[in-house]
């Protein structure tokens, strides 16, 4: 009985401690003031307690973001652990908000907390979901845009976990390129 009790109390620890952030676009305030840390967790149980408690991404109002980042990394390019990195970007069509968005976002979160990128999981910084009228976006952010082997491995595994077919390609953009883009098109560094 004691063993059963002990087992029921054991929590399943994650490799990393993660922080969930929420961003709501209120024009009259500074950008940083619109970004809020929701909470941190480091066990499977606490992840589900949080996930089942918060509003699904598809129900957020336009202009809002969720971000999940390793503790100590802020969800912005400027963070020292993001600035040399980039992101694998998934752009969704408008109608996919009610069909695919929540599934893709949950799969993205599970890839992160489950450390599903094998030896390259430590290259992952976090993930962001942007709810936008012109089309929602989900991205996994990695640490070093120049680490081609790590970045392409993460992209391939990510695409597989999302169940995207071979014909569908996803692109990786370095934050430095996104930050300084001259047109609406950002240079794509890798494709899988």
């Amino acid at each position: 009985q004691q063993l059963a009790l002990a087992q029921s109390l054991v929590k399943y620890p994650l490799q990393n401690r993660w922080a969930l952030w929420f961003f709501k676009n209120e024009k009259n305030r500074l950008w940083q003031a619109n970004l809020r840390l929701v909470t941190k967790f480091s066990t499977v149980e606490d992840f589900w307690a949080l996930y089942d408690h918060i509003k699904p991404a598809s129900k957020l109002s336009c202009g809002c973001d969720y971000s999940l980042f390793k503790d100590g990394i802020e969800p912005m390019w400027e963070d020292s652990q993001n600035m040399r990195g980039g992101r694998w970007l998934i752009t969704l069509a408008k109608q996919q908000r009610h069909t695919k968005l929540d599934c893709f976002w949950l799969d993205t979160l599970l890839c992160l907390i489950g450390e599903m990128f094998d030896d390259y999981s430590n290259e992952v910084c976090g993930a962001v979901i942007n709810i936008r009228a012109k089309g929602d976006k989900i991205a996994i952010w990695t640490r070093e845009a120049e680490h081609q082997e790590a970045v392409t491995h993460i992209g391939r595994v990510y695409k597989e976990h999302l169940g995207l077919s071979q014909e569908v390609t996803i692109g990786y953009q370095a934050h430095a390129d996104t930050a300084t883009k001259s047109s609406s098109l950002t240079k794509t560094k890798f494709v899988v």
Partner: peptide
């Protein structure tokens, strides 16, 4: 040793956790 969990375990956990 790295703490890794696969998708099935994590999803299964949500089900068990929700039914507790």
């Amino acid at each position: 040793e790295k703490k890794r969990y696969d998708r099935e375990f994590l999803l299964g956990f949500q089900f068990i956790f929700a039914s507790m």
